[in-house]
Design a protein around this nucleic acid. Structure first.
Lengths: 149, 149
DNA sequence: CTCCATATCTGTAAAGGCTACAGATATGGA
DNA sequence: TCCATATCTGTAGCCTTTACAGATATGGAG
């Protein structure tokens, strides 16, 4: 069991509760990721448990590397529990592919850097392998170690 | 032996020779990564072999995921062949650490997404694990799968 | 030489995903 | 009531490019 979600949170309290920056919360509202909450008489935002859940959802998805657009789609789907989840599935599947690609690239990169360092004694720049390898792609083990978009 | 580097390249030819976008070359010049080259009478840029080498260095380091700031440091160091390479070594070592951290996070992320997908039948959103896991960090296998900065 | 299709020029704005300010207003506890 | 915080809006900046518009230069064909 998890504790009941709090009600009537200020934006600062929501920030505390979710680990999302205050500025970022307002930003998410502006771009339509978070619905505009009710306001106090003085026009300050007041959030409820639904907002906490939703913002946690967003933050978690961002942590997992989903783009804001993908999250928008996920939210739209989540809003309709009767719908088939094949849409969410497709998004996650595409994302999985992407993640696997990034891992492979980074692994190649790690090997490359490690190799540079292996060959770098405590000499001078003149024979520093780090500089040398960077200066000359021909010395690379891997042709393809571009970082992902 | 590598072929001699060409002289008197237009920006388009430099782009061809290095695989770096024309716009990006001008951008690198603007932020001081590339020195301003000499110009023709009509104020078009003309590059020599040094520029080719330098831009290849930059591109290669970018491909390896080094930040522009790190590259600036590396270039400054490379300019002094008599200096010790411990600085370059340190930059590469820090970068290696960072890459390894990212790999670990992405691996955790991959497992998490794969697990979500495993549990996602062709049912409805109501019992879709993708949505559910995203909505509730407590269901994660891993606490720590933030994407890197 | 002229002509003209390219290539290049500058400056500006967009992208994504925030973050940082300034100056005004609201809130809540002593 | 007073006042230190917190919050408000709006704008501008960050980073690394990429894209565009409108003007000018270049180099090869005739």
């Amino acid at each position: 069991m998890r504790p009941n979600l709090p009600e009537d949170l200020s934006i600062g309290a929501l920030s505390q509760a979710t680990g999302v920056n205050i500025e970022t919360i307002r930003y998410y509202e502006k771009i339509g990721l978070l619905p505009p909450p009710p306001r106090t008489e003085g026009r300050q935002r007041r959030y409820d448990g639904t907002a906490v859940r939703r913002l946690r959802f967003i933050r978690h998805a961002r942590d997992l590397g989903f783009s804001v657009d993908a999250i928008r789609d996920l939210i739209a789907m989540a809003a309709d529990p009767a719908a088939s989840c094949s849409g969410a599935d497709a998004i996650a599947r595409a994302h999985l592919k992407d993640v696997e690609r990034r891992i492979a690239q980074l692994a190649a990169l790690r090997d490359e850097i490690a190799r540079m360092l292996d060959h770098c004694g405590d000499g001078t720049i003149a024979d520093c392998r780090v500089i040398e390898v960077l200066a000359d792609h021909g010395q690379c083990l891997h042709e393809d170690h571009r970082t992902p978009a």
